[in-house]
Design a protein around this nucleic acid. Structure first.
Length: 251
DNA sequence: AGTGTATCCTGCAGGC
DNA sequence: TGCCTGCAGGATACAC
């Protein structure tokens, strides 16, 4: 339907998934995983506007998704449509070894036991990237996007432009806690709907009113009242409180 | 090798 | 009303 979300030629992709059975579901970073037999993985990255929409029967009329990109049909008559307005999402069929390579390239899951303060401190020291960019890099930590990177930095009291290798031990400790806290809170509230995001049941996430700085340029910092500022790096907005997140040093 | 920028695509809000 | 610009939750090819 829209072949550009497939990384492979459509016929190659179809051959890889036709007739297969979904044995389980998973997630790695921001990727939804459908586990097929023989270790094959159908990996879906939702991008900015992607969504997986299940239907018991093929949707007709107004029920039809607005931007269908890939359609799967099941033997029981069910249909799964990957809908993606901007088509920044991707749908890929990977064999076991291809998935292993992909998995190994991704950083730790924020909630796994191996993601410790010591590991974060060690990894930060190896990079001069601005922290906001560092947090978005899926090779460092898997699963953090712009909203939660920005929110975690505010909770930790660290400036988004701070070079990763200049973060001190106390800041790393706070950042580690802040990453987990913001993700935990956002998950508990069903995610953040700004415009398009919907959960698997079609409902909106309830976390957006709880965002402390993201999208709040000029509004008062909920901690100190100073106006929230916006800075653009790598073409993406970061929001921060100039008082709670000083450009240099600890708070 | 590591890092920052431009780009893919569509739609919407706001200014004039 | 309509045209223009900027912006949007992601990831990466490419230049330096």
């Amino acid at each position: 339907m829209h072949a550009d979300v497939l990384r492979a030629p459509p016929r190659v992709f179809a051959r890889a998934v036709r007739g297969r059975t979904i044995k389980g579901l998973g997630r790695r970073g921001k990727n939804v995983l459908m586990l097929l037999d023989e270790g094959c993985v159908l990996a879906v990255n939702l991008g900015m506007t992607g969504g997986l929409l299940p239907f018991a029967v093929p949707p007709r009329g107004a029920a039809r998704p607005t931007h269908p990109a890939v359609r799967f049909r099941f033997d029981d008559g069910g249909t799964l449509i990957f809908n993606d307005q901007r088509r920044f999402g991707t749908v890929e069929a990977l064999d076991a070894s291809e998935w292993a390579v992909r998995d190994a390239r991704m950083g730790p899951e924020p909630f796994e036991r191996g993601f410790t303060v010591a590991r974060l401190t060690h990894d930060l020291a190896r990079s001069r990237s601005p922290l906001r960019s560092w947090l978005l890099d899926q090779r460092r930590i898997a699963g953090i996007g712009n909203i939660y990177a920005v929110e975690a930095l505010h909770r930790a009291g660290v400036h988004p432009l701070r070079p990763a290798n200049e973060v001190d031990a106390d800041e790393a400790l706070r950042l580690h806690g802040a990453i987990r806290a913001v993700l935990r809170a956002a998950i508990r509230h069903g995610g953040t709907t700004i415009r398009d995001y919907r959960n698997a049941d079609g409902g909106e996430g309830e976390y957006s009113p709880r965002l402390r700085v993201y999208g709040r340029e000029g509004e008062p910092c909920p901690h100190c009242g100073a106006p929230v500022e916006r800075v653009v790096l790598s073409n993406r907005s970061a929001y921060f409180c100039p008082v709670c997140q000083p450009a240099r040093g600890s708070r």
